[in-house]
Amino acid sequence: MLQLNNVDVCYGSFKAISDISMSVESGELVVLLGANGAGKSSLFNAISGLIRPSAGQIEFEGQRLSGLKPSGIVSAGVVQCAEGRKLFPQMSVMQNLMMGAYVHRRDKAGNRRHLEEVFELFPILREKSDELASALSGGQQQMVAIGRALMSRPRLLMLDEPSLGLAPLVVRQMFDTIQQINSLGTTVLLAEQNAYAALKIASRAYVMEGGQLVMEGDRETMLNNDEVRKAYIGA
């Protein structure tokens, strides 16, 4: 579904990502592990078209993404829910969700249906739909961010550290929800530092270090791998 071939990303003379090749198959939940600064967000932003890779190709369902504008990539079905949520703070929860449907703005009936699905996934958002996004708690803001991304009707949903800054209980709910989204048919690429929780719901995982992929494998292999345990799970 998503295929990256030898992708490099540079900020000036600094190479944030070098020679990354990876793939995500339809229906999978793939986890991208890596510490702060490993290049996970840079990789996501390159896929989303926010930064231009300096080398390599990114393809989604056979279509080249490199060269498309961010809006074109969202229309193609690749949607990112970014680290830090990137909500519209002075808009209500409802308005934030509806902005997610921007590329599908002509399909009003479809948007209402998707909005219902988002509210079923996050019932609390229905109650808070008239409140300003900035007035919500961190966990609720993260729900709005994921809900907004779902309103863009992703076929591949990229989640960048959705557990960041959330209370442990909320983190568990968040991972349950992500698993649920995946089981409903959306392919998920999840960047995380919270390795144990992420691996538990993953089909496969990649490990990133210093801008490079250093390891890949399925869930069992990763959970039992000594280096992964030492570096990310702490056991």
Binding site: G49, K69, V74, A82, L87, V103
Partner: peptide, 12 residues
């Protein structure tokens, strides 16, 4: 309100 957020929902 949020430039990157706007890009991520596909606003040109």
């Amino acid at each position: 309100q949020n430039r990157e957020g706007a890009f991520l929902v596909g606003i040109d």
